Computed example of a mutant assay.
Amino acid sequence: MSTPKVFESEYRFCLILWDHEPIKSRDLAQLCEEQLGWKVTTTYTVIKRLSERGVIKNENTIVSSLVSKEQIQTAEIEELVEKKFAGSIPAFLTAFTKSQQLTADEIQEMQQMIDRFRKEHPDD
C-alpha cells in the first residue's frame, strides 16, 4: 500500500498532531488556531479530508495518525527524486551536495549507510 499524498498545509497540521496525539479534535483545533492561524472550520475540514485519505483517524472526537512522519517524509523524497531527477539517487545527491556543505560527520554517516546497504544486499 502506498503512502497517501499529504500537501504542505496538511503536513504542518500533521506535525502538530504527531506532537500531541492522541488528541481531542477541539484541542487540536485550538492548537491549529494558535500555531497556524486556522479557523476551527479549517481544522475540521482538514481532519475530514485526511481521514478520508487514510492519513489520520477521528474516532469519538479523538484524532490520531495512521501514517507516521517518517512514512510521509519518505514518500515525499521518493516523489521528488522521481519527478525532478528521473529516479536517480546519484543525480539527486549531486544536486544536493552542490548547494549544501556536508560536515565530516554527515559524510561518515552517509558512508555507513552505504556500507550497511552493501552488507545487507550483497548482490545489488
Results as ranks from 00 to 15, higher is better:
Met1Asn: 12
Ser2Phe: 08
Ser2Cys: 05
Thr3Trp: 01
Thr3Arg: 01
Lys5Asp: 13
Val6Ala: 08
Val6Ser: 04
Phe7Ile: 02
Ser9Phe: 05
Ser9Cys: 01
Glu10Ser: 06
Glu10Pro: 03
Glu10Ala: 08
Glu10Asn: 01
Glu10Met: 04
Arg12Ala: 06
Arg12Asn: 09
Arg12Pro: 00
Phe13Gly: 01
Phe13Val: 02
Cys14Ala: 04
Cys14Pro: 00
Leu15Gln: 07
Leu15Met: 06
Ile16Asn: 03
Ile16Gln: 04
Ile16His: 04
Leu17Met: 12
Leu17Val: 11
Trp18Ile: 11
Asp19Leu: 15
Asp19Asn: 15
Pro22Thr: 09
Ile23Ala: 04
Ile23Ser: 05
Ile23Lys: 07
Leu28Ile: 09
Ala29Glu: 02
Ala29Phe: 02
Leu31His: 12
Cys32Glu: 03
Cys32Thr: 03
Glu33His: 05
Gln35Asp: 08
Gln35Asn: 13
Gln35Tyr: 10
Leu36Gly: 05
Gly37Pro: 07
Lys39Leu: 13
Thr41Glu: 15
Thr42Ala: 13
Thr43Asp: 03
Tyr44Asn: 10
Thr45Met: 08
Val46Lys: 07
Ile47Cys: 10
Lys48Ser: 09
Lys48Gln: 12
Leu50Gly: 08
Leu50Asp: 05
Glu52Asn: 15
Val55Phe: 08
Val55Ala: 09
Val55Gly: 06
Ile56Thr: 04
Lys57Met: 10
Asn58Ser: 11
Asn60Phe: 10
Ile62Ala: 13
Val63Ile: 08
Ser64Asp: 11
Ser64Glu: 10
Ser64Cys: 08
Ser65Asn: 07
Ser65Glu: 06
Leu66Arg: 01
Leu66Glu: 01
Val67Pro: 00
Lys69Cys: 08
Glu70Pro: 07
Gln71Arg: 01
Ile72Met: 00
Ile72Arg: 04
Ile77Lys: 05
Ile77Trp: 04
Glu79Leu: 14
Leu80Phe: 09
Val81Gly: 00
Val81Arg: 06
Glu82Met: 15
Glu82His: 14
Glu82Tyr: 12
Lys83Gly: 04
Lys83Ser: 15
Lys84Gly: 00
Lys84Tyr: 03
Phe85Gly: 05
Phe85Val: 04
Ala86Val: 12
Gly87Ser: 14
Ser88Phe: 07
Ile89Val: 12
Ile89Ala: 09
Ile89Gly: 00
Ala91Cys: 08
Ala91Asp: 15
Phe92Lys: 02
Phe92His: 02
Leu93His: 00
Leu93Pro: 00
Leu93Cys: 09
Thr94Asn: 13
Thr94Lys: 14
Ala95Asn: 07
Thr97Ala: 01
Thr97Arg: 02
Ser99Met: 03
Gln100Gly: 01
Leu102Phe: 06
Thr103Ser: 15
Thr103Gln: 12
Ile107Leu: 14
Ile107Pro: 01
Ile107Lys: 14
Gln108Tyr: 00
Gln108Arg: 03
Glu109Asp: 15
Gln111Lys: 15
Gln112Asn: 13
Gln112Lys: 14
Met113Gly: 10
Met113Glu: 12
Ile114Met: 08
Asp115Ala: 04
Arg118Trp: 01
Arg118Phe: 06
Arg118Val: 11
Glu120Arg: 05
His121Asp: 10
Pro122Phe: 01
Pro122Glu: 06
Asp123Thr: 13
Asp123Arg: 09
Asp123Lys: 13
Asp123Asn: 12
Asp123Gly: 05
